[in-house]
Design a protein around this nucleic acid. Structure first.
Lengths: 88, 88
DNA sequence: GATCATCCCGGTACTAGAATCCCGGACATG
DNA sequence: CATGTCCGGGATTCTAGTACCGGGATGATC
């Protein structure tokens, strides 16, 4: 077994991460934020839609940096199944 | 252009991240920390040695969580060229 | 209501790399 | 000598990151 397929748990985290980032983005366009964070708009959109479940540390850090989020808080939100993002 | 090769800047960040994690690990064994963080010891070792420059967000978060580090501080350290990790 | 612009979406395709495993070696310690 | 831990290299598989495509929804302008 090498490079196991993503666990459902990780996919779930990815979706929460995406939803969280989208919320934080607010009215700003994907393009704007992506360019600001120095990542491809396509990449950001994939992350937001959950199609990229486990983005690179640097990618997430860049985006959260642009959005003014704390990495620790983001991780806490994402790993807390009790706190439903869509409900917040 | 698809999936550009890692920029030297990213590789540099990877090395700093590895050095930082190794320092934080202290006397604990790689095996111990890796198992605790639910990642493969091989993976942790590669990250520490800088051979994996841009680990996944979840991977870094898990390791820093075990080591009691702040993701924000880690990112700040890694992205601050002025603060040489080996000097701290 | 037709046209244009902007934004978001899902799919496809491709490359470079992450994450994992196995192996052999080095180096201590018991 | 045996055991345990760390190390690098090789190999494998899955994924991230990027780009391009067509399409849908909205809103403004003509």
């Amino acid at each position: 077994m090498v490079r196991l397929p993503l666990a459902p748990e990780e996919i779930e985290r990815g979706k929460r991460l995406g939803a969280l980032l989208r919320l934080a983005r607010g009215p700003r366009s994907i393009l704007d934020v992506a360019l600001d964070a120095r990542v491809s708009p396509e990449t950001l959109r994939k992350i937001e839609t959950g199609r990229v479940a486990t983005p690179a540390f640097s990618t997430v850090a860049a985006v959260t940096g642009v959005l003014g989020l704390s990495l620790d808080e983001v991780w806490a939100q994402v790993t807390a199944p009790a706190d439903d993002v869509s409900r917040v």
